[in-house]
């Protein structure tokens, strides 16, 4: 593979923009935040981050979703942690998010608007989370 130039990167970016199905004309309304402190990195947050990026891109959601990295969210015992904030769903922090769970978060939470059970560590009230 030859080194891509910045010009080629710009073109690839433009092509990808064309693929986007923009649903929300108001701008991006869904935020996904991945904890990338020492605890997150040690637990494999980089793999979870990669899987979220892939799943968002494959589901053509990049017009709606902002993906961010942050430091430790204070839940070191259940890293990797991922926070999802979006309209129509309670703001949720998921823990123990391996690559498979990361994909579940995109498919079930973001697209399907249902919580991903057994991985919720903060925010929704206990009575709406099934044991």
């Amino acid at each position: 593979m030859a080194k891509m130039t910045l010009e080629q990167l710009r073109k690839l970016r433009e092509e990808k923009k064309g693929d986007m199905q923009k649903r929300d004309v108001e701008g991006k309304s869904i935020q996904i935040i991945v904890g990338m402190g020492t605890c997150g990195i040690a637990a494999g947050a980089k793999q979870s981050f990669d899987e979220i990026v892939k799943a968002i891109d494959e589901n053509k959601l990049s017009g709606d979703v902002i993906i961010r990295q942050t430091g430790c969210m204070g839940l070191c015992h259940v890293e990797p942690t991922v926070e999802v904030v979006m309209p129509g769903m309670p703001a949720t922090i998921y823990g123990r998010v391996d690559a498979a769970t990361a994909r579940d978060i995109v498919v079930k939470h973001v697209v399907g608007k249902t919580l991903v059970e057994n991985h919720i560590y903060d925010r929704p009230a206990v009575d709406i989370v099934k044991k």
Binding site: L6, E7, L9, R10, L12, R13, K16, K17, D19, M20, I52, V53, K54, I56, D57, L61, S62, V65, I66, I67, R68
Partner: peptide, 13 residues
């Protein structure tokens, strides 16, 4: 070249 890096398609590119 790619715009803000909070966008999945930019990240893939």
């Amino acid at each position: 070249a790619a715009g803000p890096l909070d966008d999945a398609s930019a990240l893939v590119a």
